[in-house]
C-alpha cells in the first residue's frame, strides 16, 4: 500500500476512530494508543484487504477487538440481565438539554453508560456504520444491537439529566446587595 493511500485512509477515519476509542477507554492517552494500534495492524496485516469500502468497518472492528483484548485482564463481566429495560419515551427537554451541554460533558456522560451499551451507542452516534455493520463489528445479533441501542439511549438520557442537575447545583450564587450601598 502506498504512503498516499495510507494517508488518505488515516485522514478519512482517524477522527471518528479516536472518538469511538475515547468513549471506550475513557482517557485520551489510551484512546490515542488504541487508534495507533489499529492503524499499525492495518499497516502490517489489513492492507491485504483489497476492498476499500470494507476498510471502515474493518478499522472499527479491529479497534473494538483491541480494546477488548487490552481490557480482558481486569475485565468484569456485566450481566445484561441485571440491567434495567430501556425507556423509550423521550421528551423535548432531553433534546434541549444536549444543546445546552458542552461536548466534553456529553462525552463524559457517554463514557459512564454501561460498556455493553456504550460501544453500539457511540458507533450509532458517530453515524459511520449502519446498525447491520455495528452488529457485525461488535459480533452480536442485529436484534441485540437494536435492544442495546434502545436501552443505551435511555441510560444516556438519564445520565445527561443528572449531569445537568449536578452542574446547576455547583453554580455558586453571589448575594445581591440590598439597597445598593457598599461599605
Amino acid at each position: 500500500m502506498s504512503n498516499e493511500v495510507f494517508t488518505q485512509l488515516v485522514d478519512a477515519h482517524y477522527a471518528p476512530l479516536y472518538r469511538f476509542a475515547l468513549s471506550l477507554a475513557r482517557n485520551s492517552s489510551d484512546a490515542g494508543d488504541l487508534v495507533q494500534q489499529t492503524f499499525f495492524i492495518w499497516a502490517t496485516k489489513g492492507q491485504s484487504l483489497r476492498e476499500a469500502a470494507k476498510a471502515k468497518s474493518w478499522l472499527f472492528t479491529t479497534l473494538y477487538r483491541e480494546f477488548l483484548r487490552g481490557r480482558r485482564r481486569d475485565a468484569r463481566a456485566t450481566s445484561i440481565e441485571d440491567l434495567p429495560p430501556g425507556e423509550q419515551d423521550i421528551a423535548a427537554e432531553d433534546v434541549d438539554r444536549v444543546a445546552r451541554l458542552d461536548a466534553a460533558t456529553v462525552m463524559t456522560a457517554l463514557q459512564s453508560v454501561d460498556e455493553v451499551f456504550r460501544a453500539p451507542l457511540t458507533l450509532f452516534y458517530l453515524e459511520d456504520l449502519s446498525y447491520q455493520e455495528i452488529a457485525e463489528a461488535l459480533d452480536v445479533p442485529i436484534g441485540t444491537i437494536m435492544s442495546r441501542l434502545s436501552r443505551g439511549k435511555a441510560q444516556l438520557r438519564a445520565v445527561l439529566a443528572r449531569e445537568e442537575s449536578s452542574a446547576r447545583t455547583k453554580v455558586v450564587s453571589f448575594p445581591i446587595a440590598k439597597g445598593g450601598s457598599q461599605s
Binding site: N3, F6, T7, V10, Y14, G32, V35, F40, A43
Partner: peptide, 20 residues
C-alpha cells in the same frame, strides 16, 4: 457534540509515521 471532539494534536502524524 461528538464531532466537536478533536483528536489530540500530533495523533495523525504519529499514526502516519507508525504506518510507514
Amino acid at each position: 457534540k461528538l464531532r466537536e471532539i478533536a483528536p489530540p494534536a500530533g495523533l495523525r502524524e504519529a499514526i502516519l509515521a507508525g504506518g510507514r
